[in-house]
């Protein structure tokens, strides 16, 4: 009788993590950054219809890096969770913290129990009523969750961008133009090429808006913001 071969749990986890990391690093990067009136999200995304950044609820946005089909499923689950909660209780009871916890649970369970881990890294951000109330959560493929301040980066060479931004980002929250400039230049230094506005997906959670705070900034407008 053939013996079932043995792989140690440590080895298995390591292999899975390596596999997931490879998948995520292949893609392009996404940056979320706190600015004066809210949170700015910028993604290096050549497609104009397949979004990486999306609205979840009144003051919450989602962004995913890695395998499109996988983070798209997570995005839809998040919207369902938020809308259901908002309908059942009240709109103000929908929070990024509870969403991020849900994502963390899901990703953690899949990472430890399924053969193939999800090759995704996601961001859940929530704009607060005051300047200090913003929340940025980064959730990795294994379900570990990080509470970020100032800015957060996922996908591609995220660690290098993080180091780059740590140098550039001051503790004071910059105005929109400066924040956008910072994000674009950070993405450009990593890709070593000038990025066209058409290849950038930009959105904001703007706390000055009434009701739903999420707004996409289309290429002509982002060009306008940077040049004026």
């Amino acid at each position: 009788m053939p013996l079932p071969y043995y792989v140690s749990p440590e080895q298995m986890m390591q292999d899975k993590a390596e596999y997931a990391k490879k998948g995520i690093a292949k893609g392009r990067s996404i940056i979320a950054m706190e600015y004066l009136d809210g949170i700015l999200l910028v993604a290096d995304n050549p497609s104009v219809s397949l979004y990486k950044i999306s609205e979840i609820y009144d003051n919450i946005a989602f962004s995913g890096a890695g395998k499109y089909s996988e983070f798209e499923n997570l995005r839809k689950a998040g919207i369902r969770h938020a809308d259901l909660k908002g309908f059942m209780y009240s709109r103000e009871d929908v929070t990024a913290r509870s969403l991020a916890n849900g994502y963390s649970q899901t990703l953690g369970t899949i990472f430890s129990q399924e053969l193939k881990p999800l090759e995704v890294e996601i961001l859940v951000v929530q704009v607060g009523e005051g300047e200090q109330g913003n929340e940025l959560y980064r959730i990795s493929f294994d379900g570990s969750i990080f509470d970020e301040r100032g800015f957060a980066v996922i996908g591609g060479r995220s660690e290098a961008i993080q180091v780059h931004l740590k140098d550039q980002y001051k503790n004071e929250k910059p105005p929109l133009k400066q924040a956008l400039n910072l994000c674009v230049s950070a993405l450009e230094t990593m890709t070593n090429q000038k990025l066209s506005f058409e290849g950038l997906e930009v959105a904001v959670l703007d706390r000055t808006r009434i009701g739903r705070k999420f707004r996409r900034i289309l290429p002509p407008e982002s060009q306008l913001i940077l040049t004026t």
Partner: peptide, 16 residues
């Protein structure tokens, strides 16, 4: 009305 509002917003967010 509340459900209708939620349904339309839900669709808009899912489909973009």
């Amino acid at each position: 009305v509340k459900l209708f509002q939620t349904e339309l917003e839900h669709y808009e967010k899912l489909e973009g």
